[in-house]
Amino acid sequence: MRTIRCKNYEEMSRRAADVIAAQLILDPKTVLGLATGTTPVGCYQRLIELNREGAIDFSEVSTYNLDEYRGLTHDDPQSYHYFMADQLFNHVNIKAANTHVPDGSNPDAASACAEYDHMVENAGYVDLQLLGIGNNGHIGFNEPCSDFPVGTHCVDLTESTIRANSRLFEREEDVPRQAYTMGVGTIMKARRVLVLASGEAKADAVRAMCYGPVEPGCPASALRLHPDCIVIADEAALSKCPEGL
């Protein structure tokens, strides 16, 4: 695990976009794993700028998102389908058919998860997986639990995750209580993993990921076993890690 320390969110976003841009230049047919939430928004904005400038091309790129709320239709403004279209896909030259998000509108969890696993496997898995990290150490919607989930599955969201995500809803009661998410095993099959973290609220989780035991109580800790994982974090998120990091 390699760590890049940044001064602030803006620098973190630029550095992350640089890594992704380099990947697209080296391999125009890259399979990208993407994340939602507020953390990657600055990175996506920079990728949009680079695409408009002609520095990077999404025309042959395919994407697979980590997760989706169970029970939301694709056009629901709170869905991750909608988020990705609004924050990235509608602003770059990517083909809609090449973008993939778990089907939260499918009430059959087993079917929805198996279908998504099949899609990711057929794509040859992800070349570069972008991740955030939750306050409790979750990646995707893989919450702290007794083991590391392997494939896509339906998860009950913890109260801490519901509270953290409620900032994006009118009321906390509106936050869905379940989601479909790639498993840790699928994430670990990505050839490179890029983890973004910003803000003091993430400091405990970042320290646990980088220095705590590798155990499912902190799902992100599994990334220490990945052969090519880069953490890009600002000073606030790294405030509980050694200064030399």
Rank of each mutant, 00 (worst) to 15 (best):
S221H: 03
L238D: 01
L168N: 11
E121P: 01
R224A: 12
V150S: 14
V195Y: 12
R15A: 06
G71P: 03
S111K: 10
Y82T: 04
R171T: 07
S166E: 02
C145S: 07
P176K: 09
R207H: 14
L238S: 04
E215T: 11
A164H: 05
L32R: 10
T99F: 09
G134E: 05
L34F: 06
R5Q: 13
I187W: 02
E159S: 14
S105M: 09
N93W: 02
V150I: 10
E49M: 00
Q129I: 01
E215G: 08
C241Q: 07
H118W: 01
G33D: 08
S239T: 06
A114I: 01
C229P: 14
A123T: 13
L24S: 14
I25C: 09
N90M: 03
E115W: 13
G140C: 06
R14V: 11
D57R: 03
P28V: 00
S105T: 03
S59A: 10
L157R: 12
I4L: 12
E49S: 13
A110E: 15
I139S: 02
A222I: 15
T152N: 00
R171C: 09
C241Y: 00
G71H: 05
V206P: 10
I48A: 11
Y116M: 01
G217M: 09
L196S: 01
I139E: 02
V61N: 05
T99I: 05
E243D: 15
P216A: 14
V31M: 15
V206Y: 12
N93L: 06
G217A: 14
R171K: 13
R191F: 04
I20S: 07
G124I: 05
P242L: 06
A22T: 05
L223I: 12
H81Q: 08
P144H: 02
L238H: 03
L168Q: 11
T152S: 12
D174I: 04
P77T: 09
Y9R: 13
E235V: 10
A112L: 09
D228W: 11
D147V: 11
I56N: 05
V101G: 01
F58C: 03
I230T: 15
H74Y: 10
C218V: 15
A112Y: 08
G217W: 08
N135H: 10
S239Q: 14
V101W: 04
A197M: 04
C113R: 06
V195I: 05
L131P: 00
G217P: 07
Q23F: 01
A85L: 01
C218K: 08
R2I: 06
A16K: 07
D117S: 12
S59N: 10
S221M: 01
F141M: 04
N135E: 13
L34A: 05
L66W: 07
V184E: 14
C229T: 15
T186Q: 09
V206D: 08
A96F: 00
A96S: 12
I162P: 06
F83A: 04
V184P: 11
L157E: 02
A114Q: 15
E243H: 14
L50H: 04
M84D: 08
C145Y: 13
D117Q: 07
T39W: 04
F83D: 02
